[in-house]
Write a protein that binds this DNA or RNA. Structure first.
Lengths: 223, 223
DNA sequence: ACATTTAATTACCTATGGTAGATTTCTTGT
DNA sequence: ACAAGAAATCTACCATAGGTAATTAAATGT
């Protein structure tokens, strides 16, 4: 299951001559196509799980390992890039759903539900990205997607609280805590097929909202 | 830095003959000493970081790899065992500190502070254990220590809420969320040397306590 | 057509988890 | 005490993965 290249990969592209760069450079061609490589990585991870190797990803992309390395860098860079992409997509989806919220609490509820749903939809990718990179840089790497998410949360929390005259200094810690709670509940939920999305959403929202809401705020319709 | 065994390891033990098992078994001796192996693993991880290999651990323990494998199993089993030990110790320390709490909120505060402090004290070990195992079993493994911790939280939350007439059904999700928040804040805190322990504790406690307390807001037990 | 330059491929290296086979050591029967 | 045998241990190995150097093929300028 190593090489086994079905196609000899004898240079599928050969004709290319649009804007040739400078003096006498040559053989630009597809030029790695970082996006294509990342898309191939996503495709393989989706169908083959989180245990895929870089060589397998290269093969999936129809290239060889050095090409993959030139295009996206080492494993850490790959995970980082995939995390960026996934965070971008999930953030977009969630934002769209949150836009229709009727209240701040409802916005949080939609955010939680959207996060859970997005993680389920991209289960393997989510796990691949959040599992991070093995090695000594765990501290940095295990927080890849978390950092991306937490940043946005932090802004929202800080502005929300500042607008209501509450101390925004808690925004950093709270945003990280929220992301941690969200992530761990997501992992647990992906494992337990039994739990219902809406129930989990409601419970987690209750926990998080209780922390975020302000005293003067009306009680969220307690039952 | 590979072999370098200072002592020839020529079988330090030789006298042993208490309860010989059955017919003609022999060479019981120390018999692997699972505890010793785990202690050696902890020692090495503490001083060498999370990137230690199984072979390095074996050498640190003064044995060879197969012995390590026989004693504690594969890497997954090692991480699991170390997680158990660390969770046990941290839980003990935290429990001792919580015992002196003056209120439920104070208990939570002491718990948060104790967790942060324990993680800092065993920084490398904490990272090693929470980083989990690479491979396809990430879902199971990345929650090793979390599960251990969450279980205890869940009991506490459930009984606390049940005693106050609130729905204990949220205990599972909440405990996982709490552990996630705690863990992520811990990772962040271990990275940012700047943040003060008491400040972080206070902020995180505020977030968590708001969710757990149930004065006016009985939390929508919509489940 | 030829040489040069650039890019891609192959082949390799290192390190790690994990294990099988060779070896030594100890027990125990006689 | 000595040989036979069982058991535990050690050495050596395998497989895989990340990462890279050296080799080969292609494309253009002259």
């Amino acid at each position: 299951m190593k090489g086994a290249n079905s196609q000899p990969r004898r240079k599928p592209q050969a004709a290319r001559s649009p804007g040739r760069p400078p003096g006498r450079t040559l053989r630009d061609g597809v030029l790695a196509d970082r996006e294509t490589l990342l898309t191939a990585a996503e495709r393989l991870i989706r169908k083959a799980g989180t245990g895929v190797s870089l060589e397998a990803i290269a093969i999936e992309a129809g290239v060889t390992k050095p090409i993959l390395y030139r295009g996206v860098g080492d494993r850490q860079a790959l995970v980082y890039a995939l995390a960026e992409r996934l965070a971008q997509r999930m953030a977009g989806d969630v934002e769209r759903k949150v836009a229709a919220a009727s209240s701040t609490e409802d916005a949080l509820r939609r955010l939680v539900a959207g996060y859970l749903d997005g993680a389920r939809a991209e289960r393997n990718l989510y796990l691949y990205v959040t599992a991070g990179v093995t090695g000594d840089g765990q501290l940095e790497q295990s927080l890849l997607l978390a950092d991306r998410t937490a940043e946005q949360f932090a802004e929202g929390i800080a502005s929300f609280r500042a607008a209501h005259g509450a101390d925004p200094g808690v925004a950093t810690v709270w945003s990280i805590g929220l992301v941690g709670a969200l992530h761990y509940v997501t992992l647990w939920w992906l494992r337990e097929e039994t739990a219902d999305l809406t129930v989990v959403t409601e419970q987690l929202t209750a926990l998080l909202w209780a922390g975020m809401k302000l005293d003067e705020n009306g009680s969220p319709g307690a039952s």
